[in-house]
Computed example of a mutant assay.
Amino acid sequence: MELDATFFAFAIPAVLFAGMSKGGFGGGAAFAASPLLALILPPQYAIGVMLPLLMVMDVTAIRAYWRLWDWRNARALMAGAVPGILLGSAIYSIADPDLFRLLIGLIAVGFVCFQIARGRGWISVAPRPFSAIRAGSWGGVAGLTSFISHAGGPPAAVHLLGQNLGKTTYQATTVLTFWWINLVKVPPYAMLGMFSRESLTASLMLAPVAILGVLVGVVAHRVVPERLFFQITYTFLLITGSKLIFDALT
């Protein structure tokens, strides 16, 4: 892993986009950073670099949304995420890098397809009463996909979108949930060797970009329409995910 111009050319916009999404601008697009970095790094290094940065983003964002979350939904998602994370660590220990490239690529492309279908009305998420079992189940899926590629946002969104939460309550609930999920991922990531001196150095160098992205996202969440951001993010995700799938299969 080399911290050269190519690395930062990919990493800076990826981390900035992720920070803006964590701040509330761009929905579940925060995980776009991992597929972008996986184009130039082995998957384990890509997600290893991103975890400390996501934790910096979580701490920055949680102050902006302090106590605005729905605790009942957040608590159930957080509890359910733990077994999902444990399953992810078990899968990682027996998988090769190409499997993770394939999974990250499929998650990226699947997320874009889901959002396009939802935006066009082909898929709708009907309001439904709270169920701790249902929320915990979606939390388990979020924990698993978050472990694999920091892509827990879409499964959590599927549950939360049916809860009739306001925009700010929804964002605050996801911020709290993923603050916990990312914290729980640290020990298994460390045991599986996903952190290195170089990855932690890269995370430290990119931390100001992460904080800036969150602050920009918090402001944009309140005042800016998200349509253009979504279009750009989804385009990058579709191209990146397709490339990772191609690389994994060939």
Rank of each mutant, 00 (worst) to 15 (best):
L192H: 02
A135Y: 14
V175M: 02
I91V: 15
G26Y: 11
L103P: 05
V109C: 13
R118N: 14
N73A: 15
V125L: 11
P208V: 08
W69C: 07
K22L: 06
K185G: 15
E198G: 01
P97A: 06
P154F: 12
P155F: 00
N182L: 10
Q115D: 13
R227K: 10
G23P: 02
I12F: 00
L36M: 11
M205V: 04
A33K: 01
A142M: 08
D96I: 13
K185C: 15
L249N: 13
F25T: 04
V184G: 07
H150S: 01
F229G: 02
R63P: 13
A14Y: 00
E198M: 01
A210K: 11
A157H: 12
A248E: 08
A157F: 12
R101T: 12
P154D: 09
M55D: 06
S203H: 11
I232H: 06
G28W: 07
L54F: 08
E226D: 14
L53D: 01
A90W: 15
E226Y: 10
A135F: 15
G23R: 04
H159F: 14
V15D: 00
R63Y: 15
A14S: 00
M50E: 09
A126T: 03
V216W: 09
K243Y: 10
A81T: 15
A172G: 12
V209Q: 01
T6H: 10
F25N: 00
T233Y: 09
T174M: 10
V186S: 10
L77V: 14
A117D: 12
M205R: 07
L228F: 11
A142Y: 09
R197I: 09
R118V: 05
Q44K: 12
K243T: 14
F100R: 03
V109A: 11
S34T: 04
T174W: 04
I47T: 14
M191R: 15
L68A: 14
A32G: 01
A9V: 04
R101V: 13
Y65L: 02
I116L: 08
P127Q: 04
L16M: 08
G152C: 09
A33S: 02
G241T: 03
V141K: 05
P154W: 12
T174A: 09
S137K: 12
R222D: 07
S93C: 15
G23H: 07
F111D: 01
L106W: 02
F7C: 09
N182Y: 10
A142D: 07
Y92H: 15
L37D: 04
M57H: 09
G84F: 13
I91F: 15
W138T: 10
L102N: 13
G27W: 09
L68F: 12
I104H: 05
G23K: 07
Y189F: 08
A14G: 00
M1G: 11
I211C: 08
L39S: 04
L37K: 03
N73Y: 13
P42A: 06
V125S: 05
E2K: 08
T60S: 14
Q163R: 08
L3R: 01
T6S: 13
P129G: 11
L51K: 07
W71T: 08
F230A: 02
L215V: 05
G110W: 14
H159P: 05
Y65Q: 08
Q231K: 09
